[in-house]
Each structure stands twice: as structure tokens, then as C-alpha cells.
């Protein structure tokens, strides 16, 4: 046990260097997947609240299917499945697409709830002064819905950050992947995975503090 820790201290610069490089990739994958999730979530929330029954059914199916299948399975379909059909994505884009598709389903529901939480009278008033439905959504409903969904978005980002560890299974060179490599190289599994946990904590704790602060601010704002 103690000799392991000595070896760990000995190799610390090498280990921490690789882990921090991986952490940067983790942040990049998280940011990319977050953007894809928000775009998909907005689009499908629009479908989910539209007048067309077909679009509503499509969005509903998307939400239920992608929320009922493990994100690891979805990631493997995007990375290994598509490759077998001739669409070869590198690990990083595959992770962004995989986590983005999955996250889009969750955010569809978040955005839908946000849109529905804005009083109907707001839309009706906008329509009665001659706005089109799309304009009303863009300038009246969405700005109000944004305030409602921001805490949920922050929580989603925290979950996403941790989930990107699964991208190590498709060899995306992020934090967990580099950790696995280092463990194979040094056999210092406890020390390395503890360091990995510490880095994830270092990334997620500020995010969750931010989310709590936003939740408090949002609660104040809605009372005003």
C-alpha cells in the first residue's frame, strides 16, 4: 500500500499532466454535447408544442425512445453501428453526437415544461397585437421560459459532464480514457482513480454551486 503511494508521488507530474490533458478534452466533449443537446431540445420542444399532430408524435417518440435506452448503448450505436454502415466518426465527434442525441431528449422535456409554464395569456396577447406564432414564441415566450429552465440546464450540464466518462469506452481521449491508460501502465488504480474523482469533483462542484445560485436567483425573479 505505502509503496504504491510512494510510486504515485514519484510519477505524479507525469500522471497529473495526462489527467489534466484529458480533463480539457472532457470539458470540450461536454461543451459540444451541451450545444447539440440544446439545439435538438429546442427543435423538438417546438415540435412537441406545435399544432401538427405528426410533429408532436415524432417528438414524443424521440423523447421516449432516447430516454429509455442507456446512453452507453446509444453511444455504441453511433460509434460502432454507424461505422459498420460506412459512416466512420472519430471518437470525439461520435461522443458529441451520441451524448447530444441523448441529452436532446431530456432537454426537449425541460424546454417543453418551460414553454408550458409561461402563461397562455402571454401568447394570446402577442397574437392579438398581430405577431405571428413564431415571433410570439421568439420574443415573448422563450425569454420568459429561459429564466424557468436555467436551473434545470445547469443540472443537466453536471450530469452530462459525468456521463462523458463513458466516452472512454469509444476511445475518446478524455479524462477517464487517459486514466485507464495510466492504470494499465502503472497499476496504481486506487491512486489514479482517486485523482480522477478529485478532478471531476473540481469540475462539477463549481457547476453545482452555480446551479444552486441560479435556482435562488430564479426563485427571486419569478416572485418579482
Amino acid at each position: 500500500m505505502s509503496t504504491q503511494w510512494l510510486r504515485f508521488v514519484d510519477r505524479f507530474p507525469h500522471i497529473i499532466g495526462l489527467l489534466l490533458t484529458g480533463a480539457v478534452v472532457t470539458v470540450i466533449v461536454t461543451a459540444g454535447a451541451f450545444v447539440v443537446s440544446v439545439l435538438l431540445g429546442l427543435a423538438f420542444a417546438g415540435f412537441r408544442t406545435s399544432d401538427s399532430r405528426l410533429l408532436r408524435a415524432l417528438a414524443h417518440a424521440y423523447v421516449e425512445v432516447f430516454r429509455s435506452v442507456p446512453v452507453l448503448t446509444q453511444l455504441f450505436i453511433v460509434y460502432f453501428g454507424l461505422a459498420a454502415l460506412g459512416i466512420r466518426l472519430s471518437p470525439l465527434p461520435a461522443a458529441v453526437v451520441g451524448f447530444g442525441l441523448n441529452g436532446g431528449a431530456y432537454l426537449t422535456e425541460v424546454f417543453r415544461a418551460g414553454i408550458e409554464a409561461v402563461a397562455r395569456g402571454q401568447t394570446e396577447a402577442a397574437l392579438s397585437i398581430g405577431m405571428t406564432k413564431l415571433t410570439a414564441l421568439r420574443v415573448i415566450v422563450l425569454p420568459q421560459a429561459t429564466r424557468i429552465v436555467i436551473p434545470a440546464l445547469a443540472n443537466f450540464a453536471i450530469g452530462l459532464l459525468k456521463d462523458t466518462s463513458l466516452a472512454s469506452a469509444v476511445a475518446a481521449p478524455e479524462l477517464s480514457f487517459n486514466a485507464n491508460m495510466l492504470v494499465k501502465e502503472t497499476y496504481l488504480s486506487t491512486q489514479i482513480y482517486m485523482s480522477v474523482a478529485a478532478i471531476y469533483l473540481g469540475l462539477s462542484l463549481p457547476l453545482s454551486a452555480l446551479s444552486r445560485a441560479l435556482e435562488r436567483r430564479g426563485a427571486r425573479g419569478s416572485r418579482a
Binding site: 459525468k162 466518462s165 486514466a179 482513480y193 471531476y200
Partner: peptide, 10 residues
Amino acid sequence: GTPTLTQLFL
């Protein structure tokens, strides 16, 4: 604050 995967590996 840490991924399930990291906990599993630990």
C-alpha cells in the same frame, strides 16, 4: 460529483 464509472473502477 463524480461519474458512476469512476466509482465502479475504484
